[in-house]
Design a protein around this nucleic acid. Structure first.
Length: 88
DNA sequence: GTTGAGCGTT
């Protein structure tokens, strides 16, 4: 079962609106629990968001709550949340 | 000012 206990609870968040930033992302996921770090990937060449980012939770409870829902809503848009590939 | 499919700038 794809189980995997990672050292950090990192989630890959995609389908982000163009108006969303790391702070907005952290604020949204902060509802589920304490967010250790949340950042949206930006293109250094263009300076625009890449429409996806990463959210790291400090507690498994927060990660569990967020991971329990694969579909999230932010600013009226649907966000795709998956576990990051960083740590298998 | 525009766009869109994906696992990254310090």
């Amino acid at each position: 079962m794809s189980s995997g206990f990672a050292r950090s609870y990192k989630l890959f968040v995609g389908n982000l609106p163009w108006t969303i930033g790391s702070k907005e992302l952290r604020t949204y996921f902060s509802k589920y629990g304490h967010v250790a770090n949340a950042e949206v990937v930006f293109d250094r060449q263009l300076g625009l968001s890449k429409h996806y980012g990463f959210v790291v939770f400090s507690q498994r409870d927060a990660f569990n709550s967020a991971s329990n829902q694969n579909t999230h809503f932010l600013e009226g848009r649907v966000l795709t949340v998956q576990r990051a590939n960083e740590s298998p």
